[in-house]
């Protein structure tokens, strides 16, 4: 099984990005490439579902940090959902909960774009 697989699917006008595995400096290009392609294509309402991530190093959070303002400038946002365990803990201790809206479930995160 690869270290990281990144699936995407559409839910209304939102694109759900679902990485599976771990994100570190070795695997981040795959994750970042998906996010970059979405933002460049104007798909700027993005939910990242963390349900299947075992861990995320700073490179993964950096990929979100580097694109979130681009998504917002285009009228969208990058929001995260379903973080668990170490991933959720690192998200908080890095202070990303102040940069990025988070939701318990993917459905809540998708619905949150209803009013943008």
């Amino acid at each position: 099984m690869p270290d990281l697989q990144v699936a995407t699917r559409r839910a209304a006008e939102v694109v759900v990005v679902e990485p599976q595995g771990f994100i570190n400096a070795h695997t981040v290009a795959e994750f970042e490439g998906v996010l970059n392609a979405l933002v460049e294509a104007g798909d700027v309402r993005i939910v990242i579902s963390g349900a299947h991530l075992s861990y995320v190093a700073s490179a993964g959070f950096g990929a979100i940090m580097g694109l979130i303002e681009e998504a917002r400038a285009g009228g969208g946002d990058i929001r995260v959902a379903a973080l668990t365990g170490t991933v959720a803990h690192i998200f908080r201790v890095l202070g990303f909960d102040r940069l990025c809206r988070t939701f318990e479930t993917e459905e809540e995160a998708v619905r949150s774009f209803g009013g943008h």
Partner: peptide, 12 residues
Amino acid sequence: LGRLARERRRGG
């Protein structure tokens, strides 16, 4: 983090 995000930084 806010400044890094505004500057589109991916590292640091």
